[in-house]
């Protein structure tokens, strides 16, 4: 029959291991947190230069809260008088999360959709969605409303996200 002391020692060992693991993970988290943030920023910069060209720079950025998908706005400048916008939108459905950058260029009277960049795509049919819907959309060989592509639900989500972003950007940001 194991004694009381035995039980105490066992539980102390387990507790110590758990504590040590928590501390180790915490330290690693501190060490890697900045790098992870930097990677995300790099990805956004890459997306913006893919949509607007290499010379594009972010001149202003701010968060917006009142919409379902759109949550961040980047004002992009290529030349002095440019006034283009890129919106970061994140949405999820039954098949997982998608995070996109949607670019808009100002043409004559309104902002027109000009490109999509996938920041992260955790949909079950991620590659189908990108190959059959998002890539053709960027090449302008597919219509935004033409969603039956083998990953129809994901495409519908992307369509809704883009439409919302379009509405948001044309409404203006109270400037």
């Amino acid at each position: 029959m194991p004694s009381k002391k035995h039980y105490i020692i066992t539980s102390i060992t387990l507790g110590a291991i758990a504590m040590a693991s928590a501390v180790l993970i915490g330290v690693t988290n501190l060490a890697t947190r900045n790098q992870i943030k930097k990677n995300e920023q790099n990805k956004i910069n890459a997306g913006i230069s893919e949509i607007f060209g290499k010379s594009a720079t972010i001149s202003k950025e701010f968060a917006i809260k009142e919409y379902k998908y759109s949550n961040y706005v980047y004002q992009v400048k290529q030349e002095e008088n440019d006034n283009n916008y890129a919106l970061r939108t994140t949405g999820s459905n039954m098949y997982g999360k998608v995070s996109l950058i949607v670019g808009f260029k100002y043409q004559e009277t309104e902002y027109v959709f000009s490109g999509l960049y996938v920041v992260s795509n955790e949909q079950t049919y991620a590659s189908t969605l990108v190959e059959n819907y998002i890539d053709p959309l960027n090449k302008k060989t597919r219509d935004l409303d033409d969603v039956s592509c083998g990953a129809t639900y994901g495409a519908k989500l992307v369509r809704d996200m883009v439409n919302e972003a379009k509405e948001v950007v044309n409404k203006g940001f109270g400037e």
Binding site: I25, N29, T32, Q35, N39
Partner: peptide, 11 residues
């Protein structure tokens, strides 16, 4: 730990 390190250095 490995997961976080990968996320940071090999995204």
């Amino acid at each position: 730990i490995v997961k976080m390190a990968t996320n940071a250095f090999l995204p």
